[in-house]
């Protein structure tokens, strides 16, 4: 690629979901493709079931941070967190989101109400140039585990054409970087994500 695009990707999910592992996999995929990568994450308190935000910036960005209105792409691993993270979306940016909720404790106890999926879709579609919604947990289970749902979302992102590499690059990275016992399951998950995007367009 002569002039690699400068792209900022904001990833958001819930502690324990494995979004940081997914972030590292996508960042490694980009590095393996010869792209300049800076990636960021916030650990610590966030890991105890709190919100986990991470970033991948491609094409020469130095800061690992993505502020409001700066993300070209949002990957939401949990629908409420997609909605909360929408302020990070840049004008003309796109969104891929899981549709299957992990209710926070306030919702479980009935003190707070989880937003309707319709509200989340309306917000995303109102702000984003393009958006895709996938049942990642279901598709992940179809591939072999709940955690594989993250690879479903990554596979889908690679299939949109919005990244400077396609699903083949992600598959190659999975073969190099993931433990052999996790490889086939995650490759199946990528394929399910790719198909979901293909059938949506």
């Amino acid at each position: 690629m002569s002039t690699p695009a400068r792209i900022r990707i904001y990833l958001t999910g819930v502690g324990g979901q494995g979004t940081l592992t997914a972030t590292t996999l996508l960042a490694r995929t980009a590095l393996d493709q010869g792209l300049e990568v800076t990636s960021g994450e916030i650990h610590g308190m966030a890991q105890r079931g709190g919100v986990v935000e991470s970033t991948i910036l491609l094409g020469g960005w130095k800061s690992p941070k993505i502020g409001h209105g700066e993300a070209d792409l949002i990957l939401g691993f949990e629908p409420l967190e997609t909605l909360r993270g929408m302020t990070h979306l840049a004008a003309g940016g796109s969104v891929l989101s899981n549709t299957e909720p992990l209710p926070p404790v306030g919702v479980s106890t009935g003190r707070e109400a989880y937003p309707e999926m319709e509200r989340i879709r309306a917000k995303v579609e109102g702000c984003a140039a393009k958006s895709w919604f996938l049942p990642c947990r279901t598709l992940g289970l179809q591939a072999g585990s709940v955690q594989a749902g993250n690879s479903v979302l990554l596979g889908a992102a690679c299939a949109t054409g919005l990244l400077p590499f396609g699903p083949d690059a992600l598959e190659a990275a999975i073969r190099i970087h993931l433990a052999p016992k996790l490889m086939d399951m995650n490759l199946r998950a990528v394929e399910l994500g790719v198909r979901a995007v293909a059938s949506a367009s």
Partner: peptide, 20 residues
């Protein structure tokens, strides 16, 4: 020229870190 962001959603359920 700072980026324009979409309006933040209000009254969303919070997700504080919690004991496992």
């Amino acid at each position: 020229r700072l980026p324009i962001a979409c309006d933040p959603e209000t009254a969303l359920p919070v997700r504080p870190p919690n004991l496992c």
